Simulated assay, not measured.
Amino acid sequence: MTPSRPSRLTRAAGRPTRAALGAAVAAVLVATLAGCGDSGDLRAAGATPTAVGPTKLWPEVPPASTPALDYGEADTETVKGITAPGDDIHRVDPVAVVRAEVAAHPDEYTGPHAMYAQTVDQLTYCGKKGAQGRRCPILQAYYRDLTGDGKDDLVLGIRFPKGQLGVRVYTFTHHKLVQVMGTSDSVVSVELAGRDVIIRSPSTLPGYEFRTVWTWDPHQHAMLATRDEILRVGTAPPTTAIPTLSPSASAS
């Protein structure tokens, strides 16, 4: 139900800042003005570096015959007992969806060693107003067509103990509500960008964070972690605060 974090292997180079770009443009302008009155003849730009292709390491090692770990493995589940007229996901009760998840996974939520027993207790505050209502662990629901079928899908955030946030995506398939993405992690932010779900998580390495991009895969019929990066974000230690879903996401 909750896939483990894939290996963090991809590094991404930082983009130039506006100040750096402005300095570069200014340098080009100065060089252009200084060249006024030039004859315009072609000049050599110096030696061109030789292109270096990839070098295969340890060619004597035979290709693996078994898959490595579970990276990219689809993890979907039909939500029992949840329907909506016309498969309109806007008419699905998020609290009922989470309660169905609780019922389907008693070891995680209600068993003697349940990790999320506190979350189950907090479900009693859902639907109430004021301070009690704010203790409900289910965050605001967001809607976006993530599967590309022209219909909105449901994105839910669930607060878990120890600063964890569960992120779930649901869609209707053959008149059944199906969870097509389920992950839990310490989270800096969650964003919807186009048809991607982007989750930024703190790193134990100060000044860096993880960014995982989840994208719909029509072959697996699930949201897969298609890009997993470690990014330089500054020098301050990472935060473990759990925010709400990004306001930049479009809610219906």
Rank of each mutant, 00 (worst) to 15 (best):
V95F: 05
T66R: 12
T240H: 12
A241V: 05
G53S: 10
A34I: 07
P238W: 01
G46W: 03
D41M: 06
T124D: 14
P137W: 07
L156Y: 04
V28A: 14
G22M: 00
P218Y: 10
G86R: 08
I138R: 09
T244E: 14
P206W: 00
R159I: 04
S248D: 11
Q164K: 09
G182M: 11
P137C: 05
V28G: 05
S65E: 13
W216Q: 12
I138M: 09
S189E: 13
V98C: 07
V25Q: 07
A45M: 14
H113P: 01
Q122G: 02
L224P: 01
A20P: 01
T235L: 12
A24C: 01
R99K: 15
G163P: 02
V213I: 12
V169Y: 05
P3G: 03
W214F: 15
Y71A: 08
L146E: 13
S65D: 13
H174S: 13
P16Q: 00
P137V: 02
I89W: 06
L165D: 03
T48C: 08
A13I: 02
S189W: 13
V167W: 02
G182V: 04
E108A: 14
Y71T: 07
C136D: 10
A12C: 05
A236H: 05
S65W: 09
P63F: 10
P206M: 00
A45P: 01
E108Q: 13
Y142W: 04
S186Y: 07
S203T: 00
L57H: 10
P237S: 00
V30K: 03
L123G: 09
F210N: 05
I230E: 00
Y125H: 14
Y71L: 05
P247S: 00
R5Y: 04
V30E: 02
T239C: 00
T66H: 06
R195H: 14
D149E: 03
H174M: 05
Y109W: 15
P62S: 03
G40Q: 03
G166R: 13
I198P: 00
S248K: 10
L165S: 03
T226S: 10
A249M: 07
G14R: 15
C136F: 02
V213K: 10
G111P: 11
Y142Q: 07
L9Y: 12
P218W: 13
A31K: 11
E108M: 10
T215A: 14
Q140A: 14
G53D: 06
K176Y: 04
T48H: 08
Q220E: 15
D121F: 04
A249N: 00
G130Y: 05
H221Y: 02
P3C: 03
K162A: 11
S65K: 13
A193R: 15
K151C: 02
A26Y: 04
P62F: 06
M115K: 12
T119A: 12
D149R: 02
G86V: 09
A222G: 09
F160S: 02
F160C: 01
T239Y: 01
T171K: 11
D38S: 15
P54V: 07
I198M: 03
A117C: 02
G53Q: 04
L9M: 13
W58H: 12
